[in-house]
Write a protein that binds this DNA or RNA. Sequence first.
DNA 1: ATACAGTATGAGCACATGCTCATCCGCGGG
DNA 2: CCCGCGGATGAGCATGTGCTCATACTGTAT
Lengths: 200, 200
Amino acid sequence: MSPRGVPIPDVRQQLFNAAERVLLRDGPAGLTGRAITKEAKCATGLLYNHFADLDDFLAALLLDRAARTGTAMAGLPARAGTGRVVGNLVDAVEALFAGNLLALAGLVMTRPSLIPRMGEALAGGTLHVDAGERAFAAYLRAEQEHGRIRAEADADSLALALVGAAHQLVLTHAPDPRERMHKVITALIWGVERRHDPPR
Amino acid sequence: MSPRGVPIPDVRQQLFNAAERVLLRDGPAGLTGRAITKEAKCATGLLYNHFADLDDFLAALLLDRAARTGTAMAGLPARAGTGRVVGNLVDAVEALFAGNLLALAGLVMTRPSLIPRMGEALAGGTLHVDAGERAFAAYLRAEQEHGRIRAEADADSLALALVGAAHQLVLTHAPDPRERMHKVITALIWGVERRHDPPR
DNA sequence: ATACAGTATGAGCACATGCTCATCCGCGGG
DNA sequence: CCCGCGGATGAGCATGTGCTCATACTGTAT
């Protein structure tokens, strides 16, 4: 623990990291102020010197992590037409896993009080509780226009199924989530993808 | 409220119903002993006269509801080859929604302490945290043997995507979950279903 | 050296929760 | 008519939570 009065570098990020560890270890129910500060090896009050509120802190955590994964996800639709569909989707899901965005979205589900705190971000379209769902749907639609995916397939439903499956894997602490997610993606895309390359 | 000493008929079921209402209204975090007994309009202590523990109560609730929906789900694989695939799946998902099994499974995710309490049921295969996932997979495999679904499709992945999507809809309190789930089912099955009836 | 500003600390407050238990009451038997 | 048993009651205890604030400490300016 830091001695009294010595400023801690990157306090906020350190608290974020500690909270993330607690969340992944003990689930949303274990994510208390004391657990977080204990994990970060600092005093309980420190959290409230830097954030108005526990909900405020958690909302900031969520926004921080979302921003971190945001660029990778935002670039997804632009990749339509390049590479294989499955490969692009696997990369995107990997970004979600790496940012722990899915576990954090699970947090929001169990703490409805968080939602109003992130009002601007939600309203501005920066972040959605449905995490990558919109990015997936946008990407799938773009691939449809490129002729890579059949036009009759419902992109919204496929996107919902994708993030639903990923979420399920994360929340149940399933083993080998990446491998299973890869299989899910190929299974969902398989029947819907055009076998023949578009006419040239 | 019942006057002192007057036995309450069907106490356990009444508490179950109250808990279910609270869960659907306030989410897992709001599911406290006081909230449940207040919703049931009885004394706090009553719950502990009939259950050892809050976790004990919640586990019993989960098992009760699972048993209620269990028969409908168990009959699913047997229906392979009868009717349309989509129709059968819609019926099964309806059974899950009606029994609120998905919301209850969400409860388990946020309360890991529940899992050991339902040890026998989990070990005996009566109930799985992954709810209808196995029933779906078994059904899809049966349809594959009947030639209704292409053999190349991965039944496990499709089943995971199905319950994942349903779960996502329930946990986010999405509007019109049944309608959206219907679309998801048709989207997932569409590319994988055999257009031509099996040769006769 | 002294003063001061900035900041981490942790005991402690008010409150909610899980759970207990002495209490009270209706109903059936004598 | 009284007794006593079964069962619902709710005040209350111990604990954990969110959050506060007087305190202690370091580093810098003078």
